[in-house]
Nucleic acid binder design. Structure first.
Lengths: 366, 366
DNA sequence: GAAAACCATGTGAACGATCAAATCGCCACA
DNA sequence: TGTGGCGATTTGATCGTTCACATGGTTTTC
C-alpha cells in the first residue's frame, strides 16, 4: 500500500514526504532538527525513510547550504625523498575519522609551479570548504593566504614561520627524542650521539633540542657528538661512519629519521659490529624500514593527530580548542638494547608485539 | 565600466552573463559547447569569465547533471600486513591523473563488518558515481554487486573470481618474475628458488608461474626449490633458511614480496654470507625496504596503471578499451649481481639512479 | 476575552548550474 | 511574398534540498 519511489532513480525527500503524508520540510526537519517534529510524525517519517531507503542527496545539500563539508588534501607527488609514507597513513586516519565530523576528503594534486593556484581552483569550484595541509615547508605561502581569505584549514605540522597561527596539530618530536635518550640510558649506553639534518630544518632542530635535553636530564654524555646529513642513504652512511668512530664502546646514535638510522646500521655492519649489542640506534617515524631492520624508532600518534586535526578544523573559535602537541611513543626493538630481546635462534620477536613505550599519555587540549 | 560581481561571495554564471551582455545559457555554452557560440560573443564571454575569476560551481553542475564525476576510493585501515604502501602510491597517481578525466576522488573508510554497506551509502548520497577498487580479495562481493547495479567501477588487480569481468587493470607479475629469473641467469646464478605465499593466493600463484616459465626459458635449475611463508618476517626468515640450505653455491631466491625478500636477506646474513655475492635475492614491489636493503625488486608501473584505470572507468563500451595488463620493470641493486655494483668504499650508488630494466614496453590496449 | 506566544507543519523561493524547447533574425527557395 | 531552414541566442523548467516566512490551531497572559 505504501507509496513507491518514482521510476527514475532513487527516492527523494518528496517521495518520503508523500509516503508519510507530510510536507518536504517536515521530512527535512525530521533529519536535521528532529526536536521540532511531533513524536508520532517523526516515527512515521523515519519509517518511510527506512522503507524507501532514502538517503539525502549530498550534492543538493551542498548547493543549498552553500557548504561542501569537504576538505582538500594535497597528495605528495614526489614519491622519492619521503621514505616513511607518514602522510599516507595520516590521510588514512583522517578518512576514517571524517564521518564523525560529517565531512569527507577530496584528494588533489598541487600544481608544482604555483602551489596556491591548485588550492584556489578547488576552492572556487565549491567542491571543498577548506584544506588539511600536511607538508608545510619553510616559506610555505598557504597558511597566510588561507587565513587572509578566511578559508578554514588545519596544518599537520607546526607553522614554524608564524607562531601566532594556531591552526595546527603536531607531534612533539622533542619529547620523543628526550624519551628515547632516557630509554637508551636505561639500556646501558653511556654516550648518545645525534645524527640530524643540515641546518635550517625547524623539525630537525626541534628533535635535536630534545636530544640535548635528554642528555642533561638523564645524565649522559655526548653533547659534542653531533653530525648532520641530508635525507639520502649514502650520505647518511658516511656521516654515521665518522660519528661511530668518535663514539667509543658504549655509545648509541639517535637519528632524526629512519633513513638516517638506516645509514647508521650500515656503518655499524660495515665495521663488523652489531646494532644494539655494540652500538645503539634509534630512528624516527617507525616506518617499515625500521621494522624490517629491527631498529627502535619514535612513533607518531597519527590516529590522534587526525582526530585533533578534525577538531581544530571545526573549532568555532569560542570552544577553547587549541593546537594539539601530541606526544609520540617509542617502539623498542633490538637496536637499542644490549642483550638480545629474544633467544637468538631462528625465531625473532613479532614486531607487532614489540614493547611499546608510552612516553606519556596524550597531551591534548586541556 | 565593467559589472562587478555581487557583494556576497564569488561570481556566478549570471554575473558573467550580465557583464558580457548575454544570457546564462550563452555563458554555459561558451564553456561546454563553444562551437555553438559566435566567435565575437565567445571572446567577450571568455574575457568576462577571466576578469571576474569565474569558476563554475561544481556542486550545482553535479546536481543538475545528475552526475558527480567523482569516484570513491576505499582506504585500507589495516595499517599492518601491507608493507609497501603500493595502494597509497596508486592513490597518488590516480589523483594526479584525475583532472585529465574531469573527475576527482573521494576517500572513504570501508565498513569492516559489511563491505558493501559503506559503498552503498556513499553511492546513494550522490557524492560519487562509482568506485576504484584497489584490494579485491578472494571472494570479494563488490565487483558482482557493482556490475549488477550498473555502477561504474574499475579494479586495480584482476578479478580472479570471475574472469569474464573486464573492468580491471593489473600488473603482469608473471612477466615480471620471468624477467627477473632471466636477469639472475645473466648475472651468473645457476639455480633460482622461489619463496612465495601459501596456497590459494591467485596473485602468488601467478608470480610462481612466471618463475617456473623463466627457469625453463632461460635454462636454469631450481624448479624443485620452492617454499612458502605467510607475509610475516620471522616465518619468512625461517622458510628462507631452509631454502638456502638446499640452494648450494651459485643460487638465488626469487620472492613474491619485498617482505619475504627481507626474510631471505636475514637468513643470508645469519650464515655470515652476503646477498648478491653469495646468494642472489630479488623481491617484489620495489618498496622502501628493498631500497634500504639494496635488494633488487620488481617494480609495478603504478603511473600507467592509474592512467589505464581512468581510461577503463570512462570507457563507453564501444571504444574498444580493454583491460590493461601492464609489464613491470626490474630495479637492479646489489642483491642480484655477484660483483659489487660500485667500489665498496663509503659511497654507495644512488638508488634513484639504479639501473632500471625495462622488461618490455607497456602492453596496453592495442 | 482579545492579544500575545507558542507549537507543528506547510508554502514559496533560492542555491547555481544545465536541459529542452522557444524565439529571433537572416537568407534561400519556390 | 510567403514559407522553410538554419544558426545564434534566450526563456522556462528542473535537479533535491534548505532557508525564511506564513499558516492554523492551541495555550498562555493581563
Amino acid at each position: 500500500m505504501g507509496v513507491q519511489p518514482r521510476a527514475s532513480g532513487r527516492a527523494t525527500i518528496v517521495d518520503v514526504a508523500r509516503a508519510a503524508g507530510v510536507s518536504r520540510q517536515t521530512v527535512s526537519n525530521a533529519l536535521n532538527a528532529p526536536e521540532r517534529v511531533a513524536p508520532g510524525t517523526l516515527e512515521r517519517v523515519r519509517a518511510e525513510i527506512h522503507r524507501l531507503h532514502f538517503t539525502p542527496n549530498v550534492t543538493a545539500q551542498q548547493l543549498r547550504r552553500r557548504r561542501a563539508s569537504a576538505y582538500g588534501f594535497a597528495v605528495n607527488p614526489t614519491g622519492s625523498a619521503r621514505m616513511g609514507h607518514i602522510l599516507d597513513e595520516f590521510l588514512v586516519e583522517l578518512t576514517i575519522a571524517a564521518p564523525g565530523h560529517r565531512s569527507h576528503l577530496v584528494t588533489f594534486a598541487p600544481d608544482p609551479g604555483d602551489v596556491l593556484e591548485s588550492h584556489k581552483r578547488l576552492l572556487s569550484s565549491g567542491l571543498v570548504d577548506g584544506f588539511v595541509l600536511a607538508d608545510t615547508r619553510h616559506g610555505d605561502p598557504r597558511p597566510h593566504w588561507l587565513l587572509e581569505q578566511g578559508v578554514p584549514f588545519v596544518s599537520f605540522g607546526r607553522i614554524w614561520d608564524s607562531p601566532h597561527l594556531e591552526q595546527w596539530v603536531d607531534v612533539d618530536g622533542r619529547a620523543g627524542m628526550h624519551a628515547a635518550v632516557c630509554h637508551l640510558a636505561g639500556s646501558g649506553y653511556a654516550r648518545v650521539a645525534f645524527l640530524g639534518w643540515p641546518g635550517g630544518s625547524a623539525v630537525g632542530d626541534d628533535r635535536r633540542r630534545g636530544w640535548l635535553e635528554g642528555l642533561e636530564d638523564c645524565g649522559l654524555q655526548g653533547a659534542d657528538l653531533h653530525a648532520t646529513s641530508p635525507q639520502a642513504i649514502d650520505r647518511a652512511t658516511a656521516a654515521a661512519d665518522r660519528l661511530i668512530e668518535q663514539l667509543g664502546d658504549d655509545g648509541a646514535v639517535l637519528c632524526a629519521s629512519d633513513l638516517l638510522a638506516l645509514g647508521v646500521v650500515r656503518a655499524i655492519n660495515r665495521r663488523g659490529l652489531e646494532p644494539g649489542r655494540d652500538v645503539g640506534v634509534v630512528g624516527f617515524d617507525d616506518t617499515d624500514v625500521a621494522e624490517a631492520l629491527q631498529v627502535s624508532s619514535v612513533r607518531q600518534p597519527l590516529r590522534e593527530a587526525a582526530r585533533s586535526a578534525w577538531r581544530l578544523l571545526h573549532a568555532t573559535g569560542t570552544d577553547g580548542i587549541r593546537p594539539a602537541l601530541l606526544t609520540p611513543t617509542l617502539t623498542v626493538r633490538g637496536s637499542s638494547v644490549r642483550t638480545p630481546l629474544a633467544a637468538s635462534g631462528t625465531e625473532l620477536p613479532d614486531p607487532s608485539n614489540a614493547h611499546s613505550h608510552p612516553a606519556h599519555t596524550e597531551k591534548d587540549t586541556p
